[in-house]
Each structure stands twice: as structure tokens, then as C-alpha cells.
């Protein structure tokens, strides 16, 4: 599903003393069927950016096109003063059409295609059994109870929770298991675009690895995955492409190996451990080839190569 940001601005609390411009003139076409990481310091606009993709927020100005759906500003725009009467009329009609769209069923269809997993999604579990919780999404999008349950079971198995979990209460599960249930809830609606906001925060390394492997599998099955994260080690390891947000603007869009391995203080980012180590070796005079550096094993290969 093609996603395109055109002159997108977003302002929190406009025209008040608390006004803050979260996004400023974003123009970007997002890659499809890729594993894309969104990075940037706290407050750089990452969360606002992803909430525009599934229309939880609407831009203050500009628009976001997600497949057939266009996410326009909620407030009708005033016509420019220099228009003729007919032009003004056409402008108003167009604005009205846009406004109605916000209330239409299109937005529901959009959210079926774009799944967003919030940070700490386990806090959103609410049903009495795991399968009911996961089936909520598909049922809400119009599936019969049986169909929804079938999809729920499939999604649960996909995240690695077998049938012994189906009828348990989600509140009796461990932190990592709860998160898996929450992710299954999104997968059950089979979105074309999956956005995950800090999915590994608070998980132990093994559970984090499981979660990332799952997103990679989902991406390889044809879903576009957008990962919002602070963890540069994950970006180096999994992402095909990385988008850097800084101060409400996209300042870089490139493969991870192009971003990492240089001084990143200007973006308030840290290099992944492997690149950091490579950089320190370089400063001492040992230059490594970092073009395909993703993990410790790649780093060891690059060192062996350089020492030859």
C-alpha cells in the first residue's frame, strides 16, 4: 500500500500558549514491503508521524495519502482571497467533501489495512479470555464470531501461543506473553501495513529477539513493517531502511549501513554497538568495511578481513 506525505504539518494545541509544532513540512514516500525503522530522539515527532498513517491524527496542513484514503486536515481550509466566485464555490464544495470523508466508513477500512501496535500494548488487553481479546479486531471489522475466532487462533499461533493459551485470562500471563496477545490482536485483522511502536521496551533479550523475528517473518510474508525504536542495535540488525526524524522533519532516509558508522550526535542518536566498536578501531587506524555490518558475527568477519 503506497503511503505518501505531502507538505504535512502537525501542531499540538494550535493557537494556545502550549502550541508545539510536532511535524514541519514533511514530504516523503514510504517504501512498500520493506522493514523500515523510524528513529529520532524523544520528541522528534516519531509517534505523531505514525499516528497520521492510520488517521488517529489528522494533519494541521497538507495531507497523507494511504492507498486510496487521503488523510486531510479536520478543519475546513479557508479559501484564498483572490478566487473568483465560482472558484470559491468549488473550493467550498471540495472542502465539504473532504470533511464528510472523516466521518465516513473509509476510516474504518483504512484502520483494517494499517495496524498500529502501541507502546506497552499489554495495557490494552481487556477481554476475559485470550481468544476473545484477539478476536475483537476482526469482529469489529465485520467478521462473524466463528470467523473472528478462527482468525484469532491463527494469529495466536503465529506469535507462538498454542491452544493451551486460548481460553486463559490475558491478565494471568507473563509480560512477554501479554505483549504477544496484543500483537496477535493486530495481526488477526491481517493488515497490509504494520506499525510497531517500541515493541521490545521492557522485554528480556530472548523475548525481544522473538518479537523481532516475528516482525521479520511478517514483513517477508508481504506486509510493510514500520518499527519505531530507540534501539539502534535492532535497526542495524533488522531494518532494510531507516528514516531519521529530527525536530519534526525527515532529515535522512537511507539503508542503516549508510547512516551508522559516523558521528551521530547531530541527531542525538547512538551508533549500534557493532558500528561503535568499528568506529573506535578506525580512530586507532584499523579501517573496517562496514557496508554490510549487521551483527557481531559480521563485525568479526570485517575485523578478520582488515587484519589479513
Amino acid at each position: 500500500m503506497p503511503i505518501n506525505f505531502s507538505h504535512v504539518f502537525f501542531t499540538y494545541n494550535p493557537k494556545s500558549p502550549f502550541q508545539s509544532n510536532a511535524l514541519k513540512d514533511i514530504n516523503i514516500t514510504l517504501p512498500e514491503h520493506r522493514f523500515v525503522a523510524l528513529v529520532g530522539r524523544t520528541g522528534s515527532g516519531k509517534s505523531t508521524f505514525v499516528q497520521l498513517i492510520n488517521a488517529l491524527l489528522s494533519p494541521t496542513d497538507g495531507y497523507v495519502k494511504i492507498g486510496d484514503y487521503i488523510n486531510h486536515p479536520e478543519k475546513a481550509k479557508k479559501a484564498p482571497k483572490d478566487l473568483s466566485k465560482e472558484q470559491k464555490k468549488a473550493w467550498k464544495a471540495e472542502q465539504k467533501r473532504i470533511q464528510q470523508k472523516h466521518k465516513s466508513k473509509d476510516i474504518k477500512a483504512l484502520r483494517k489495512h494499517v495496524g498500529l501496535v502501541f507502546q506497552f500494548p499489554e495495557y490494552q488487553l481487556f477481554e476475559e479470555t485470550v481468544e476473545k481479546d484477539v478476536a475483537f479486531g476482526p469482529k469489529n471489522f465485520g467478521d462473524s464470531k466463528e470467523e473472528a475466532l478462527k482468525k484469532a487462533h491463527q494469529a495466536l499461533e503465529e506469535v507462538g501461543l498454542d491452544s493451551s493459551f486460548f481460553t486463559r485470562s490475558p491478565f494471568d500471563l507473563s509480560g512477554g506473553e501479554k505483549r504477544k496477545v496484543a500483537i496477535a490482536g493486530i495481526l488477526a485483522t491481517s493488515p497490509e501495513v504494520l506499525i510497531v511502536d517500541e515493541p521490545t521496551a521492557g522485554l528480556d533479550p530472548a523475548a525481544a529477539k522473538d518479537a523481532m523475528a516475528l516482525f521479520q517473518k511478517i514483513e517477508q510474508a508481504g506486509t510493510s513493517v514500520f518499527l519505531v525504536t530507540h534501539d539502534m542495535d535492532l535497526v542495524a540488525q533488522y531494518a532494510d531502511e531507516v528514516i531519521v526524524l529530527e525536530n519534526g522533519q525527515v532529515v535522512k532516509q537511507c539503508p542503516p549501513s549508510e547512516l551508522f558508522g559516523q558521528d551521530l550526535t547531530q541527531y542525538s542518536l547512538q551508533n549500534p554497538h557493532v558500528f561503535d566498536f568499528a568506529l573506535r578501531l578506525e580512530k586507532r587506524g584499523l579501517k573496517l568495511n562496514t557496508a554490510s555490518l549487521r551483527n557481531v558475527d559480521d563485525l568479526a568477519n570485517a575485523i578478520m578481513e582488515a587484519k589479513k
Binding site: 528480556d204 533479550p205 530472548a206 554497538h273 566498536f277 557481531v296 558475527d297 563485525l299 568479526a300 568477519n301 575485523i303 578478520m304 587484519k307
Partner: peptide, 20 residues
């Protein structure tokens, strides 16, 4: 028991495995 080795030790082990 699903605990990773720290970065330094993993790197050292990987280098050793490659003959260093």
C-alpha cells in the same frame, strides 16, 4: 536459559572461532 553474552564476550568468541 536465554541469556545473551555481553557484546565484548560475543565478539571475542566470534573472533576466536574464526581463528584469531
Amino acid at each position: 536459559i536465554h541469556l545473551d553474552a555481553p557484546f565484548f564476550l560475543s565478539l571475542k568468541a566470534a573472533l576466536k572461532a574464526k581463528g584469531m
